[in-house]
Every structure is written in structure tokens, then in C-alpha cells.
Design a protein around this nucleic acid. Structure first.
Lengths: 342, 342
DNA sequence: CTGAAAGCGCTTACAG
DNA sequence: CTGAAAGCGCTTACAG
């Protein structure tokens, strides 16, 4: 007997001399199949390289065994500009999905496009993971829509009160506080902050608040002139630091809202003949792989991406299973390297 | 009329007072539907936020509208160690898929695991894109299996004669040649190569061959003692350069098989008190985003990831459509920066 | 322990 | 231009 095209469970059934449902049961490990029958079926299935058709089983079961990962980044002109931190998250999310037998569908979406719930509505995914340092105030409306439509989703971001849906994020405030304390302990007094510190970017805002709290505790105040907006790219960090230098601002340290910003800032400092850390100490946030490989190594705040990915996936699976899942904050950890003289 | 759960085409049909197939036709833009009927159906569909159930339509049409992207990297202990170059490819592949209305399923696989054709056999994907600097000789057997099973796939890699399946790669030989010529023109005579140069890694081997050809053309010879194996990580580059330095090797330039290796090597040189480019010139390969942001900027060979992603997707879609598709090589472009004194 | 039956939500000939 | 019918390949009550 020759089978044209991919084998189906009916083909296996004919070959094994049983009914098609029995094949299905055997393949799914149902206890209601005799060991002998199961063995025969599995052997044939293996020989034919049979794989259950996911479209059929998903249709029947009304679920997909797939999660969708959506990046909602600022419109980026070039493909290469994905933040390495998120790519590290991507790795751990992929792994967490695989461990639980879920596939991962990914998509890089503009904040502006009309993706909301598309993946779930079309049954392509059972739930959605949102990742990205986008403008929170713009994203908020869409998150609200998702909640109203009953879409299952979790997002990586500042886990603050009053947000729609489930957010998993690290303790940005504590991280900023730690960096502030550290820089102050190294003798820095005028600490510039590179990154948006408004409610548009709650994570950066929290980091800035942590820094400001450290300054206040030391009897100092955060100087608004030393805060320069920057999105999360080396280029933005380079430009922000350059602007600060050309504006004649005086500072002895830079706390960048992300490592990419910090690396761009270090380049600008270098080009202006300033030494790191002798003239200006620099600290970042994220601990991307390259943070330890720039010269000098970059002091930064590590976010545990492995843990983050696991929690994101587990929280989403809980939502899908109809269980409760709340927002959570994971710890941040200061990592000392040469850029602050450590 | 209230609908429980997600609306189906049958719900729309009832509401519009037509049959269910007519709804399907209208939604798919069939010309065999009167404008008036179509308008009514589309309005209702929009209002109910109806989306075609992909599982059902895929089952019916026997295709998935999805491509699978599989990374087959060396077993990596930590999630963060994905080569930024591939992540850049990931971005362009995602975009190319989206433009053509295909979804992208991704998976990070070990070379050792038993994924071959799993995605396609289970109808989860119509075809597979393979990405990774794995050991080619190990991968080869699996590629051969894929070809035999009739799986549609394309891979990024050295497009050399005699390989199973379709390979898309850049002109590694020309890139290595360009780097060699450039370093020689800067006065370098003893050029170390960091990276495996055996047939296990044909891309690296080609880069090395290019370098060797440049040396030969200048009346010099490649010194085997100056070639040190290294996989594509900063750590490996750091270790390879350190080994070279501690072994007392004399060299005035380093050509790293990838930017990550180069960045690790630069750190090692720095720690040994050697200046780049004054004491040792350094060049890499890939032009990852950070290459321009390390200090000094890294001279490297750019592979056009946008074009690569587009060609990979187009070639795969051609295979899926039953058309012929062959291996292709895309140009490499030397990018000069401070690390070679440019 | 196994089989006959129904049905998941679509798409596509086949009639009219 | 539209509808009735069949069927994609599964899974899961329901009988026995």
C-alpha cells in the first residue's frame, strides 16, 4: 500500500487494522488502548514519519498550542535596531515556550498598526506576549482594548498600579536607587540622566526616580538640566551626550536609562577627550551581553531575562487556563565594572 | 441576537441573511458576490470583529500561511548568546514574511535535537528557514534528510557546490580578500585569523581563504600559527587573542571571523596594553550594529541582512509554489573604521 | 478496550 | 450571483 502525500491517522488505522479514533487515542497516550495495539500503531506512525496535523487538531480542540510574541517598538527604519535586551528576552521566552510544548509566533509591529488581538481572534495563538520600550501613553489605549475584548496577554514593562492587564517588570526604582548610591559613593555629585523620564516611559521614569531619591538622601537634588531625553539606541545616547557636552553642562557621571544609550554616550565622551571613568563615570541598565565587552566594562543593572521569560510565559499560560495572574516585579541587580571605576 | 464566544462565518451569514459560503466568498474578495451583499457582510464582520479561523481555513486549504525559522546554534548555556548578526537577520526575515502575508514561527534548536521537518510535517509551517553558524559537517546529514523527505527549506550559509538544498550566503571569499588587501595596504604583514578555518565552518573557511589569497598575492604566506579556532562569541574571541598573546606570537593585525570575536579580541589586546590600531589593527565580519560603537570603531565586512532576509523568504516561497530556486551569493562590502586606522 | 458518529469552521466544486 | 453539499484531519462524547 502506497500513500500519496503526507500520511493521515486514517492511513495508519488501515495499516494497523484498527479504527481511526483508536489511532488518535494511541498517539495521544490515552490509557484506554491496549499496550499491544498502541505498540503496533506507534511503530507504523514512526515508520511513516507521521505527524498529527496541527490545523485539524487545533480546529477540533479550539486552541492552537501557540503563543504570539509582539514587539511594539518605535517605528524603526532599519531592521537591525532591535534592542539586544529584548532579543535576550526573546531567547528565554522561546525556550520557556518550548519547554511547555508551545510554539512561538513572532511579529515586529509598529505601535500604530492595527494588530490588536488579531492573532488571538484568528485562532493563530492562544495568547499574546507584548514586548517593547514604546510610548506607554500611546500603548495604553490599545492595552485597554485588549482587556475589553477579553484577549489573553501579558506585557513586559513597569508593573505599576492602575495598568490594564498583566505586567511583568523588574524593580526599576530599586535599580536606579542602587546606581545612585553607587555613583555617590564613588564621589560623583553631578549625575546626568540620559533617557526620557516622563510618564511616557514609566520604566525610565522609575529609574530616574530611584536616582533622584539617592541624590535627595545625600542632601543633593536632581538637576533637570542634566536630564536629556533619549530613546534606546546607541545613536540616541551618542547624541544626548553630545548635546550635553556642547551645551557646556558640568557633570561627573552619566546614568543612562539603558546600556545602548550608555554605549553611545561613552563614544561621545571619548570623542570629546573625556576619560571613563576618570573624568566621567558611566552606568547603564539591562546588562546586555556587550556591556562587559566594551572598554571599559560598563557598570549596569542586570535584569534577569531568563526568569523574566519564564514568568511571562507562565503568567500567560495561567490566563489561558482561566486562572488568575497578577502583575509582578522581579529583582534588579547592580553589576559593577570599570566604567564607574569599580 | 447575542453570540457567545468568537463569531463564526455562520453567525455572520445569519445576521446578513445569506448562506455561509457567501460570507466566505465576500470575505475573500471573490468577484462572484454582488457589491451590495458584500458591503453588508463586510460591515457586519467588522462590527463583530470577526476574523477567519486560521485553523479551519488552513485545514481546508492544506497549507498554513506560516514559515518556520529555526536557529541551529551550538548548544549555548545562556539565552543571551544569540549572535546579533542573526538577530538582525531575524528582523529582516520577519519583515519580509509580513510583507507577503506569512506568519513566522521561530525556534531555537540544538543541532542535536530531532526537529527535522517536524514543523512542516505537522502542517504548522509551509517551509523552513535555517539559520546558524553550526558545525556544517554535522548539519549536513540532516540537510540531506530534509531533501530526501521533500521538505521545503532554505538556509543561510556558504553557497558552495555540492550542498544539499538551497543555500543563500554572502561572498565570504571576496570579503576575506578585501580585508586582506586592506590590511596589507595599511602596512600589516603578520595577520592573525581568529576563527575555525576548517570545512566544519565553510563560511569562516572561505573568509580565511580570501585572506590567504591576499597574502599570497603580496608574496607572503598565511602562517598556520596565527590561525586560532574560535566560535562566534566575544568570550571565544577574548580567549583566542589571549592565547595568541600568551603564546608569544608576533602579529600586527587580527582578522576575526566575526565581529563578536573581534570585539572580544580587542578587549584582550587592550588588557595586554596593546593599542588598536597603533600596535595591532583589527577587522571583523558581519557589521553588527555595535561594530560602529565600540572604541575604536571596528573595520568589518557588511553582509546586507535586509537583502538576505528578502532573498531567503522569496526563495522559500518559490520552493513552496513548486518553482525552481537555486543557491545564491550576495555581495560583501568592506566597511572601514578606526580599528584599522581608517 | 474499541468503533460508529458527530462536529470543529472553513473553502470549493457543483447546481441552479 | 447564490445555496446545498462535501470534506479537510482530527478529538471526544456515546455505545457497546
Amino acid at each position: 500500500m502506497t500513500i500519496k502525500g503526507k500520511p493521515t491517522s486514517l492511513d495508519i488505522a488501515h495499516l494497523a487494522g484498527v479504527s481511526q479514533p483508536t489511532v488518535s487515542r494511541a498517539l495521544r497516550g490515552s490509557p484506554m488502548v491496549s499496550p499491544e495495539t498502541r505498540r503496533r500503531i506507534l511503530a507504523i506512525a514512526r515508520e511513516l514519519n507521521y505527524k498529527v496535523d496541527k490545523n485539524a487538531s487545533n480546529l477540533r480542540c479550539q486552541q492552537s498550542g501557540t503563543l504570539a510574541l509582539l514587539f511594539f517598538e518605535e517605528p524603526a527604519p532599519d531592521d537591525a535596531s532591535i534592542n539586544p535586551f529584548f532579543l535576550s528576552m526573546l531567547g528565554s521566552i522561546t525556550r520557556a515556550c518550548a519547554q511547555r510544548g508551545f510554539d512561538l509566533l513572532i511579529s515586529f509591529q509598529q505601535l500604530s498598526s492595527d494588530w490588536h488581538a488579531d492573532y488571538e481572534d484568528s485562532h493563530k495563538a492562544d495568547g499574546i506576549i507584548l514586548l517593547g520600550y514604546g510610548d506607554y501613553l500611546e500603548a495604553r489605549t490599545r492595552l485597554q482594548q485588549l482587556v475589553e475584548q477579553g484577549t489573553r496577554f501579558v506585557r513586559w514593562g513597569a508593573a505599576l498600579p492602575g495598568q490594564p492587564g498583566v505586567s511583568i517588570g523588574c524593580d526599576n526604582y530599586q535599580g536606579g536607587l542602587d546606581v545612585g548610591h553607587h555613583l555617590l559613593a564613588r564621589g560623583c555629585r553631578r549625575i546626568a540622566f540620559l533617557g526620557d523620564a516622563s510618564e511616557h516611559y514609566p520604566e525610565f521614569q522609575e529609574r530616574y526616580r530611584g536616582l533622584a531619591a539617592a541624590l535627595t538622601a545625600a542632601g543633593l537634588a536632581a538637576d533637570p538640566d542634566l536630564q536629556v531625553d533619549a530613546v534606546t539606541t546607541e545613536q540616541a545616547g551618542f547624541e544626548a551626550a553630545t548635546a550635553l557636552l556642547q551645551g557646556g553642562a558640568e557633570f561627573d557621571a552619566v546614568f543612562a536609562a539603558s546600556d545602548l544609550i550608555a554605549i553611545g554616550a561613552m563614544k561621545a565622551l571619548h570623542e570629546h577627550g573625556l576619560r571613563v571613568p576618570e573624568d566621567v563615570a558611566v552606568a547603564g541598565f539591562d546588562d546586555i551581553p556587550l556591556a562587559s565587552f566594551v572598554t571599559p566594562g560598563l557598570t549596569t543593572v542586570q535584569q534577569d531575562t531568563r526568569q523574566a521569560g519564564t514568568i511571562l510565559v507562565e503568567s500567560l499560560l495561567a490566563l489561558i487556563a482561566g486562572e488568575a495572574a497578577g502583575s509582578r516585579t522581579i529583582p534588579a541587580r547592580l553589576v559593577l565594572r570599570g566604567s564607574t571605576g569599580a
